[in-house]
Design a protein around this nucleic acid. Structure first.
Lengths: 227, 227
DNA sequence: ACCTGAACACCGTTCAAGT
DNA sequence: ACCTGAACACCGTTCAAGT
């Protein structure tokens, strides 16, 4: 069995932190973060779980690395663009990255040490605002509102029971949820909203994102001008 | 030992779903959600872990119940108040509840079935806006922006490495984080922000919350007027 | 009706032993 | 230098047995 192990080792690429993190992201995307274990991760890479500890400190380190990769997937428009357009593009790309990796937001809450892609991202946002003439205080305000909105909206979107369903199947599912979940007279406004919007074919909660984003960008623009 | 068990059973109050959820919240507040286990929860209540399954379906059910209790802790001002004041009060109270229970936001992402307090909360928000004359579409917009901001801001606040520190100790800690974490010339705008704001004594990131909240409420007010 | 002990199929992580 | 097997101290949950 020594020969069998050797052959297996030859067949597979060398284990690296990078490969481990990629595999972990794939597993989490497919099966959910709660079912990601060091043992399954090793198995996916054709290796015993214990081998992972030669390349990552522990599971927390793996989770930190995964979050940093998600940050790295967010597009940061080239310098020189109007700040409002740049912030808008970044916000849209951030939401998409967070939807691709639904486990990421939940993980952020407990990450203590931001990785290099995370730091680069934040530095880019602040730099774009400062270059556009924002004061330090105003840049902090804008940064805090925008990031709050992006994370919070996407979190809400991911939490909705029907976020990913579309078309007829989605409508049926929504109707089912509503009728099962609560009596309409107990929550009349929720029922009204569900019937008039959520159950309309073609409705997607995600479409709300850009309305709020533009309202916020407009508010920041207004506050910035009045300084 | 039959007598010993009986005596212990007499000494403690009857096990109920309510008592289990309260104990779970206390444990999660104190030790973090990741260390909450059915075994420790049982121990805290003077009972074997298996007894919990007589009152809760499983651990997911316990987590659902915990989140619903947090929603129940958010103050909903009495009817008849100006919508802007009502939304402001609710937002402030929601942030406070989420800060009291730092594990709640991370949990929301994966909750499939909202509890009664959660439904009542959402119904109240929509009702307040509709009563104030918001169209269904505009109520949906407002609701989505506000909740996005509240969750997202608080999530960011909880993620910050120095969120809870204050005064001299806080400043020292921040300075340490900055000097260790990254070279200032690598992330110049982050460094600038840290030195000019975060390291100033008395700085609290949470103070940003109301600035953004008012900017958003103002934007909603403006959009509502222009309809 | 409620509680429990034993058991099952899992975890993350350490460490000495292998190559 | 990297990988592994065995071991330790944990998990959530089922189930038959107790009261």
């Amino acid at each position: 069995m020594a020969t069998r192990a050797k052959r297996a080792a030859k067949r597979r690429a060398a284990l690296t932190r990078e490969r481990i993190l990629r595999a972990a992201i794939n597993l989490a995307d497919r099966d959910g973060i709660e079912s990601l274990s060091m043992r399954k991760l090793g198995q996916k890479l054709g290796v015993e779980a214990m081998s992972l500890y030669n390349h990552c400190q522990n599971k927390v380190d793996v989770l930190d690395g995964m979050v940093d990769i998600v940050f790295g997937e967010i597009d940061l428009p080239a310098n020189g663009v109007d700040w409002q357009i740049a912030m808008r593009k970044r916000a849209v790309s951030a939401r998409q990255a967070l939807l691709r990796h639904p486990w990421a937001i939940g993980l952020m809450e407990s990450r203590a040490t931001p990785g290099p892609a995370t730091l680069r991202h934040h530095d880019w946002v602040l730099g774009t605002l400062r270059t556009a003439g924002f004061s330090i205080d105003m840049a902090a305000h804008a940064y805090s509102i925008l990031d709050g909105y992006i994370y919070g909206f996407t979190l809400t979107e991911l939490t909705l029971p029907f976020s990913n369903s579309e078309g007829a199947a989605g409508v049926a599912e929504i109707a089912g949820n509503i009728l099962e979940g609560f009596r309409p007279d107990e929550y009349p406004h929720l029922a009204e909203m569900a019937v008039d919007r959520a159950m309309k074919p073609g409705y997607k909660y995600g479409d709300e994102f850009e309305y709020g984003l533009d309202l916020i960008l407009d508010g920041i623009h207004r506050a910035q001008d009045s300084v």
